[in-house]
């Protein structure tokens, strides 16, 4: 369709933004969550020690899953609302 089609959107929240330095960005040619995590740790080594959940399109995914273009992948540190 267009050149944007291979992109996924990353969202980081809370203390993870201290590590990533940004709260939303795009990444290209990512096929699954395991691959994404490996690339992120390479770029942001402190992520290896960080505790977080991954949500794809607002649904928490435990373990690996295939990512498709247009997915919104959120990195969620432990919640601390209330």
């Amino acid at each position: 369709m267009d050149t944007e089609k291979s992109k996924i959107t990353l969202l980081a929240f809370g203390q993870l933004t201290d590590i990533t330095g940004q709260s939303t960005w795009e990444m290209e040619d990512i096929s699954d969550i395991d691959q994404l995590k490996a690339i992120l740790i390479e770029k942001y080594p402190a992520l290896a020690q960080a505790k977080y959940l991954v949500a794809v399109n607002m649904e928490v995914i435990r373990g690996n899953a295939t990512l498709k273009p247009g997915d919104a992948v959120a990195l969620l540190p432990p919640f601390s609302g209330g």
Binding site: F13, G14, Q15, A55, A74, L76, P77, F79, S80, G81, G82
Partner: peptide, 14 residues
């Protein structure tokens, strides 16, 4: 409701 909010709502406090 309060317990579920604490565990399930993506909110962060600094």
């Amino acid at each position: 409701i309060v317990e579920r909010i604490k565990h399930e709502i993506p909110v962060w406090g600094k």
